[in-house]
């Protein structure tokens, strides 16, 4: 497995877990209180901490166990990365558009923020998933 492929799998998994937990916790809070009163900001900021730690730690381990290949980034890696970014870009655009519509409709900040956040998370998951698929199945 190419180093960049391993890296993609790890990062996509970390994002899925961290934001899966975040959205689950926030979702639970939604059933308890009116949306305007949910204090999600600290949770959102705090979620970045395990994200960064897990990402850094996992990549250190990956690099140490794949010393020779750790800096590899050849044309196939670049090409797959570009394809992934393109898919992610479409998904991100949908999220941004959703946030825009919600803002124009003067929906609560809570929904605007989470439309944008969900758009970004789904975009990263989509681009990661696309990369993994392309590495496995070929282009």
């Amino acid at each position: 497995m190419a180093f960049q492929e391993k890296s993609s799998i790890v990062m996509t998994a970390i994002l899925a877990v961290v934001y899966g937990v975040y959205f689950t916790v926030v979702g639970q809070r939604m059933s308890g209180a009116p949306v305007d009163e949910i204090v999600y900001q600290p949770l959102l900021i705090v979620a970045v901490v395990p994200l960064v730690i897990l990402a850094a730690a996992s990549h250190i381990v990956l690099a140490l166990t794949n010393l020779k290949e750790a800096n590899d980034h050849d044309e196939r890696d670049r090409w797959i990365s570009l394809r992934g970014e393109r898919v992610g870009g479409y998904v991100l655009a949908v999220g941004v558009f959703a946030g825009l519509v919600l803002a124009m409709a003067e929906a609560p900040y809570f929904f605007v923020a989470h439309a944008l956040l969900a758009g970004w998370v789904l975009a990263e998951l989509s681009s990661g998933g696309t990369r993994i698929l392309l590495y496995r199945r070929g282009v």
Binding site: M1, D72, R76, D77, V139
Partner: peptide, 15 residues
């Protein structure tokens, strides 16, 4: 000047 996996992918018609 490419990775081994890329050569493999080329041989298998995956790239």
């Amino acid at each position: 000047g490419v990775t081994r996996q890329t050569i493999n992918a080329i041989e298998l018609g995956k790239y």
